[in-house]
């Protein structure tokens, strides 16, 4: 009868043999020298890190950063507050209030309805890009920077003042 701890049900069990250490192993010096050699080798290698705020890495082409609400070629807001971004948002980070375009505001808004309030809670946003995919008007893109840190929760709710693309002069 074999001992229970030696039975291998998967056939992959390896029995670890604990042999007594020999002299070189006992004085530990070769291992220390080996470890230090690796450490000192890295001093002469290229650094893996960068000095972040001064130096920046290039984003990949499909990087998803802060959202921006787009304008069309005439500088009118593209968003019509259709709510599909908010519907597709898995984190429920987007809220909006629609309003009707008044006569004389045609240069400001593209369609007869526009988003009077458009808010994204950046604490909830997971930057999945579903809003960008859902948008039928190409009005929202996650083409911005990394969302900055803050100390106050209410500063993470980004309104149109922060999201809307600035007008090109």
């Amino acid at each position: 009868m074999e001992k229970l701890e030696n039975i291998s049900l998967t056939g992959r069990k390896k029995v670890l043999e604990k042999k007594p250490m020999n002299f070189l192993e006992r004085i530990y010096l070769p291992s220390i020298v080996q470890g230090l050699a690796i450490t000192f080798k890295h001093l002469f290698k290229k650094k893996a890190t960068i000095q972040y705020p001064e130096q920046r890495r290039e984003f990949s082409v499909n990087f998803r950063g802060i959202h921006s609400l787009k304008r069309d070629e005439e500088g009118r807001e593209r968003c019509t507050a259709c709510g599909l971004c908010a519907l597709s948002c898995p984190a429920e980070a987007i809220t909006m209030i629609a309003d009707e375009r008044k006569p004389g505001e045609e240069h400001l808004y593209r369609e007869e309805k526009y988003a009077a309030v458009y808010e994204i809670n950046m604490l909830r946003c997971i930057f999945c890009g579903f809003c960008e995919e859902a948008c039928p008007k190409q009005a929202i893109y996650l083409d911005g920077d990394i969302a900055p840190a803050d100390v106050d929760r209410k500063n993470f709710i980004y309104g149109k003042d922060k999201l809307l693309e600035p007008l090109l002069k």
Partner: peptide
Amino acid sequence: FRFKNRVWF
């Protein structure tokens, strides 16, 4: 109800 909200909200 015009433009008040989307039906699904």
